[in-house]
């Protein structure tokens, strides 16, 4: 039986012909960008509010900071308690054209020892966890130019 690939959150990223991209929204009036997406109303208090249009975020950014999770996070993070805990890195990435910082897990195999503040990273498709029916997908940050 083939399992379905389901995004962990609907509408936050897409993997179409153009490659994997994070999806935010942009205010048509003031051009503020929102991630996670804001679909109701622009949050810029100086903006009267315009239509919010879906927009892909920059593929590349620079490491603002990073850390890791040496201990198993609690629910609702999903882990298999039968398996030993494998730490993973978290990277906060500064996107130049959006002028914002977006947090994400690092791609598997990337550890804090591989990272420095200011390093260029790219967004790639990733798997958060899998169960019998579903592969739950997410976004990962990976040092630019590194092949999985």
């Amino acid at each position: 039986m083939s399992r379905t690939r389901t995004p962990v959150v609907d509408g936050w990223f897409a993997d179409d012909g153009d490659g994997f991209r994070l999806l935010g929204t942009r205010c048509a009036a003031c051009s503020s960008v929102f991630f996670p997406r804001e679909d109701a109303h622009c949050r810029n208090p100086r903006c009267p509010g315009g239509d919010l249009e879906e927009v892909p975020l920059s593929r590349h950014g620079r490491v603002w900071s990073y850390t890791d999770s040496r201990y198993r996070p609690p629910s609702p993070y999903v882990t298999d308690p039968e398996l030993p805990w494998e730490p993973y890195a978290l990277i906060a990435v500064e996107l130049e054209s959006e002028r914002m910082v977006v947090l994400g897990q690092a791609a598997p195999g990337v550890t804090v020892a591989d990272l420095t503040v200011g390093m260029e990273v790219e967004v790639v498709a990733g798997v958060l966890h899998e169960d019998a029916e579903t592969i739950w997908t997410t976004w990962h940050w990976r040092p630019a130019g590194v092949r999985a």
Binding site: S69, P73, V78, T79, L103
Partner: peptide
């Protein structure tokens, strides 16, 4: 932040510290 990233409070403290 827990469901998608497993980002506990100490991971945010770690980000500030590294920064």
């Amino acid at each position: 932040r827990f469901r998608v990233l497993g980002a506990t409070n100490p991971t945010y403290f770690g980000l500030y510290a590294r920064r």
